[in-house]
């Protein structure tokens, strides 16, 4: 019998719905991409997953909306909590979902070190270009010129490219898409969660805050989506120019895709060495 229910509901806590996100927020698209990825992979329920998030709008994606074990941690600390969960129970699939402020500013040290260690985690950073939850302050990814509540005359700092930063570490997988690239986004999630099962896998989703970026710039969500598509440049075709406005170009694509041993692989061989009584490599 065909179900009349939306397919995503089996992954969601219906008592927590509707979400608290602003109308037009791209977090809904991220949830949709996650749900579609699980659905297409035939995942019945998320009981073997643990989602860990920090503080900020993106951190609400799993908690409380997804029907999964979730830890909503301190600001910036999703990664170390996720590390603790994964190392203490490697059988769990641990996924971090948080924002650019949480992972790229206050939690950046943890992010870089988890990537350096090729820690066995999948991390989705939803980059809304500002601190949305606290009313639109400048974040480390705010493009030059963008109005924010702490740069009311236009942001003047150099923004950070988290993907390029992490691609320089030992991370196995680094990719960036936008909500306008829905299929690519979903395929990246599937790749991170089901094809590459080990090491550090990182996906950035450039999803400008509907309320504090797009609306402020006079763009409705649909127009913001179209703009994302226009501004996006494929990593493998860097020649194509961007099309004006803050964050002239968004370089999208897969920055890195490897299958090196992850942290746990290395730790297990270390443990073997320890058990054999050796002290030197």
């Amino acid at each position: 019998m065909p179900s009349a229910e939306h397919f995503a509901l089996k992954y969601l806590r219906r008592e927590a719905l509707p979400t608290a996100f602003c109308p037009g927020c791209f977090n809904g698209i991220v949830i949709n991409a996650l749900a579609k990825a699980f659905e297409e992979e035939g995942v019945e329920d998320l009981r073997n997953y643990v989602f860990v998030s920090g503080i900020g709008c993106a951190a609400w994606i799993p908690s409380p909306f997804m029907k999964v074990d979730s830890l909503h941690t301190l600001h910036g600390r999703a990664i170390p909590v996720a590390v603790g969960v994964k190392l203490a129970n490697p059988g769990l699939d641990v996924v971090v979902v948080s924002g650019d402020g949480d992972l790229g500013s206050i939690g950046l040290g943890h992010l870089v070190h988890a990537a350096r260690r090729n820690m066995d985690l999948a991390v989705i950073m939803v980059n809304n270009l500002v601190y949305g939850m606290t009313r639109g302050q400048q974040s480390p990814t705010t493009p030059p010129g963008l109005w924010t509540t702490t740069t009311p005359y236009g942001s003047y700092e150099y923004p950070m490219d988290v993907c390029r930063l992490l691609a320089e570490t030992s991370a196995n997988y680094v990719a960036r898409w936008t909500p306008a690239h829905f299929n690519r986004l979903k395929e990246s999630i599937k790749h991170m969660l089901f094809r590459r099962r080990r090491g550090f896998r990182f996906l950035e989703v450039v999803a400008p805050c509907t309320t504090y970026v797009s609306r402020r710039r006079g763009l409705r969500p649909g127009e913001a989506l179209k703009e994302l598509l226009r501004k996006s440049v494929r990593l493998e075709k860097p020649g194509k120019p961007g099309s004006g406005g803050p964050g002239e170009r968004i370089v999208v694509g897969v920055f890195k895709d490897e299958d090196k041993p992850g942290y746990l692989d290395l730790y297990y061989s270390y443990v073997e060495r320890a058990r054999r009584g050796g002290t030197h490599g």
Partner: peptide, 13 residues
Amino acid sequence: IAAINAIIGASWA
């Protein structure tokens, strides 16, 4: 900071 948060995650696990 990472140490205390890692043991929090580990404890939950």
